[in-house]
Nucleic acid binder design. Structure first.
Length: 409
RNA sequence: CGGGGCGUCGAAUACCGGCAGUACGCAUGGUUUGGGACCAUGUAGACUGGGUUCAAUUCCCAGCGCCCCGACCA
């Protein structure tokens, strides 16, 4: 991708926002605020989000089948489960519904999808032979947070992966629940968050009288407080923290949350299956969420320095930032074009800064954007290139082929 | 949802009851090119509605929006 034709604009003098992720993502042109808690994901930001969601997909495909449910649903479904009173729900109606005297103009902008997925499953999974099964989606969710804040950490519209599992017994549900924990940790580990992400006991909230489990990433700007038992390593959300024991306290941000729903929604929708004896039995369900856009914010909070973002290689928007200096020199321009071709041919995703701007502007953009490798072509580099990692201060002068080998290794 | 603050060129800010300023960006020309270069010229701005006043961007009221603190966060 050539910088000059990419829809990307960084700013030098953006003001400081209430969180590091908001400041760096806005300065770097990853996101643009449309209103409180609502952001456009700009092209370079979308590359990151897509990478995050690709990893989530790869892990979730082991658990269930991907589908896509709608953002809009009829309010009647929510009346069935009694969740219309939840105050984060956005209600929507057609602009002309009132004047047309229609009374079917009430919709919910879905904040989660139990109300959609349970009737769906009930349509075609009715025999014990059909169980267990699970479906998931990655989709935009709406929650009317009373106070949106901290950039991507707490928006009113955000991206989420939500998976729903269906079982013939509580034991089977719990077995799947443990498999989901493993898959979740794989996701966070692949993004560099494995060490600092704790499976945390939390309240079951509206869903269950028992515990749910949150995946909490220890993070200064996190909105939650968790306690970790020094002896056992067990983690607890503040809301369920036990009084006994020796604990360390941490700020943390919730990147995932899983609930054993048991029969809450199957009862509401009267979802039963036929067992081997021909009898009707109630279905057991679980739900499992990962906030993918929030993950993007948390990763920035975890991985940055005074110069900008430091993306983990697995989700970086590009692998290489290619900067050609001395762009008015025809020969160097041509050499940089060739290096760009070579990198691209080698399958390395490259942002080629071909702009006619001062070298410092290119270096600071490379740092701010957090791309893992920086490759420089200039009159100093001769017929070689200079390779520098984002995390290191020193650079190496290399032939293009050994540069490619290093980047790919 | 309680409390507070703020709305000024594209973004950031300043001053002011009487011609709205700065540096950034953007445009044009020239000089530059290893850590956000420089010169010249140009470009563009007072959230909306009402009130007070000879005169309102400035003071008052309302609305809308944004931000911060707290509560909330299935």
């Amino acid at each position: 991708m050539k910088y000059s034709s990419f829809f990307l604009r960084t700013t030098r003098d953006a003001k400081e926002f209430d969180s590091i992720n908001a400041t760096l993502l806005i300065k770097g042109g990853f996101i643009d605020q449309v209103m409180s808690g609502v952001y456009t994901i700009l092209p370079i930001g979308l590359r990151v989000l897509n990478n995050i969601e690709r990893i989530v997909r790869e892990e979730m495909d082991h658990l269930g089948s991907e589908l896509l449910m709608p953002s809009l649903s009829p309010v009647e479904l929510w009346e069935t489960t009694g969740r219309t009173g939840v105050d984060v729900l956005f209600e929507a109606r057609g602009a002309n519904d009132a004047s047309r005297k229609r009374n079917d103009g009430r919709y919910i902008l879905n904040s989660t999808h139990e109300e959609v997925v349970t009737p769906l499953a009930k349509k075609n999974r009715l025999s014990y032979k059909d169980f267990p099964f699970a479906v998931y989606q990655i989709q935009t969710k709406f929650r009317n947070e009373e106070r949106a804040k901290s950039g991507l950490m707490r928006g009113r519209e955000f991206r989420m992966k939500d998976l729903y599992s269906f079982h013939t017994s509580e034991e089977d549900l719990l077995a799947f629940y443990e498999k989901a924990k493993v898959a979740y940790m794989n996701v966070f580990t692949r993004m560099g968050l494995g060490q600092d992400t704790k499976i945390t006991k939390a309240s079951g909230g509206d869903f269950t009288t028992g515990f749910s489990h949150e995946f909490q990433t220890i993070c200064e700007s996190g909105e939650d407080i968790i306690y970790i038992n020094k002896e056992t390593g067990e983690a607890f959300n503040k809301e369920v923290a036990p009084a006994e024991g020796d604990f360390t306290q941490h700020n943390a941000s919730e990147v995932g949350n899983i609930f054993p729903l048991n029969t809450k929604f199957s009862k509401a929708f009267d979802y039963t299956y036929t067992d081997e004896q021909g009898k009707q039995q109630i279905v057991y369900m679980g739900c499992y969420g990962i906030g993918t856009s929030r993950l993007m914010g948390v990763i920035v909070e975890k991985f940055h320095d005074e110069k900008g973002i430091i993306w983990p290689k697995s989700i970086a928007p590009f692998t290489v930032y290619l900067a050609s200096l001395n762009t008015d020199d025809e020969e160097i321009r041509k050499q940089a074009d060739d290096v760009y071709q070579e990198l691209t041919k080698a399958g390395i995703e490259t942002l080629y800064d071909d702009r006619n701007v001062a070298p410092g502007a290119k270096f600071s953009d490379a740092d701010l954007l957090g791309i893992p490798y920086r490759v420089v072509v200039s009159k100093k580099t001769g017929n070689q290139v200079e390779l520098k990692e984002r995390t290191q201060d020193s650079s190496l002068l290399l032939d293009i082929s050994s540069c490619i080998d290093r980047v790919k290794s």
